[in-house]
């Protein structure tokens, strides 16, 4: 699969246009439904951290889900079966990078589907869609 990758976080200027793009794609203008996050690395002078799902080989979020609501797919990363999800938050706790975002309106997780919509709105070459081959250390 092609995976959304953080190609070079050092180029990130912290504009957060990717976050707005992600939420906009979900027909939710603003930031509520963004599955990507940009925050400063402890002060903007130190640059930024870009947090997005890495589609782990053996995803802790999937393993942590008590109702099997999360499934790792080859096409679009981790998918949620909303009907199964009870909103316990175990997936979010299990993700060490914090890439499981939370939709507080419906109390369910939001995870990047690797569609690449945000890439078009990153003017500084931080993000890209990359074919996944073996282990990757990007991001």
């Amino acid at each position: 699969m092609k995976r959304l990758s953080v190609l070079d976080a050092e180029r990130c200027v912290g504009c957060q246009c990717c976050m707005f793009a992600c939420s906009r794609r979900a027909n939710s203008p603003g930031l509520a439904e963004s599955c990507i996050g940009v925050r400063s690395n402890g002060g903007m002078e130190r640059g930024f951290v870009v947090v997005v799902c890495r589609v782990c080989e053996n995803p802790p979020c999937v393993r942590a889900c008590p109702t099997d609501a999360l499934v790792r797919t080859e096409k679009s990363g981790i998918r949620l079966d909303e009907a199964k999800c009870i909103g316990c938050g175990s997936c979010a706790e299990a993700c060490v990078v914090g890439a499981v975002y939370w939709d507080s309106e419906i109390n369910k997780p939001m995870i990047c589907i690797h569609c690449g919509f945000c890439v078009d709105f990153c003017p500084h070459g931080v993000l890209g869609l990359k074919e996944r081959r073996g282990l990757s250390h990007a991001g």
Partner: peptide, 10 residues
């Protein structure tokens, strides 16, 4: 270089 929120210019 830094940007304000929601500004691609930086």
């Amino acid at each position: 270089r830094l940007a304000c929120s929601h500004c691609p210019v930086a």
